[in-house]
């Protein structure tokens, strides 16, 4: 048991990060499925769902210290936002998604 509260917190942070990291690939796969559905032109709702999922994962992965994933997913979120606003940027969105997936390999 650690006597230093900050050290104890760091130990807990490492454990939380490890658990989140183990689920990160699965969360990216879920995000990829949403993006693919939106790309296939399913519906505006599918695009909104992908955008929301990208927004959440960008913030969460960054808070857990997965900076490369967070930045790539944030770029995906920005691209999806522009697509929502009528500017076609699927190439950038898909490239950002691929970059995020590579970051967890």
């Amino acid at each position: 048991m650690s006597a230093d509260p900050a050290e104890g917190a760091r130990v807990q942070l490492v454990e939380l990060r490890s658990r989140f990291g183990a689920r990160l690939r699965e969360r990216l796969e879920q995000l990829a499925a949403l993006v693919e559905r939106a790309h296939a032109g399913a519906s505006p709702e599918a695009l909104a769902e992908a955008l929301g999922a990208a927004h959440r994962l960008a913030g969460t992965s960054g808070s857990y210290g997965f900076v490369d994933v967070s930045e790539a997913v944030a770029a995906l979120e920005r691209a999806l936002q522009r697509i929502t606003e009528g500017e076609a940027e699927w190439e950038l969105a898909l490239a950002s998604l691929a970059r995020a997936q590579q970051a967890v390999q």
Binding site: P5, A6, G8, A9, Q12, L13, L16, F20, R56, G59, T60, S63, Y64
Partner: peptide, 19 residues
């Protein structure tokens, strides 16, 4: 926060780091 992972790390930070 609707994200369970954010609640988990936020709770740890506020409780363990911040008392």
């Amino acid at each position: 926060d609707d994200d369970e992972d954010i609640r988990a790390i936020g709770e740890m930070a506020l409780t363990e780091v911040g008392g």
